[in-house]
Design a protein around this nucleic acid. Structure first.
Lengths: 126, 126
DNA sequence: GTAACCAGTTACCTGTAGTTAACTAATAGC
DNA sequence: GCTATTAGTTAACTACAGGTAACTGGTTAC
């Protein structure tokens, strides 16, 4: 970006780019709920996922937050919102093709969470 | 866990476990700075990383936040803190062996951030 | 003695993420 | 008419993440 300091070398430059990329990710995916919602929806692609069902199964999320997060995710083209012709009306939320790009992300966070819990157990025993 | 509802099947149960694991990850790694710090330190394992240097190179972080986040990371056994015998005294921060378990996590967040930026560009052009 | 470097700490403040609870509006069943 | 379901919205609040700026305490160099 523009002028480069003399002491800047390739590794430093690429490091800054990496950090910038990660800032982007954190900004878009950060917070308590977005990745949980995305994970839930990708685990349920074969089913109809309507609002109340999602709220019931993602423990602790309020209607307000779910509504807000789903809007954000829709704006970022991660999920689609479709009105179902049922009575009472239900709204189906589904992961988009682009939303599936988050599968590796949530995969690794799930795995890290599981591993971390194991690690804590071991630390206590030893 | 304990009692399992009748309608609960294996997929649903494992989904809840996945979500719990991801909640753990988000709780420990969440926020604006922790993963950035970890990424920075893993990219600089061959060098001495003292406080001011980290603050200079992670753009925008305040001394207060850096201090707090480093403490948290140390408590979670992700980084070590060693006093260097220099004048003036410097404190070296380094990623632990366990802290390296975050490399795949930050790798994928860096990659997703880069890809997302590309995707946005394409969307604008089309 | 004063300016500059290091590694923080402290106090004060703000913005926003997130919570709770009440409410709208539509439909269906009893 | 009453209750229950759906999908949210709105208001009022809280708590904490994070920002800003001044300050400590030690060392070196001029």
């Amino acid at each position: 970006m523009g002028t480069v300091k003399n002491k800047g070398n390739v590794r430093e430059a690429s490091c800054q780019e990496e950090l910038t990329a990660m800032r982007d990710s954190i900004e878009i995916l950060g917070g308590k709920w977005k990745l949980l919602i995305m994970r839930y929806l990708t685990n349920r692609t074969s089913e109809n996922n309507h609002f109340k069902k999602i709220q019931r199964e993602i423990n602790g999320i309020s209607a307000k937050m779910l509504s807000k997060e789903l809007k954000d995710l829709e704006l970022n083209l991660m999920v689609t919102r479709t009105i179902q012709d049922t009575r009472p009306v239900t709204i189906d939320y589904a992961v988009t093709e682009y939303g599936k790009s988050l599968i590796p992300v949530t995969d690794i966070l799930v795995q890290w969470g599981l591993d971390h819990r194991e690690k804590i157990k071991e630390d206590i025993l030893v």
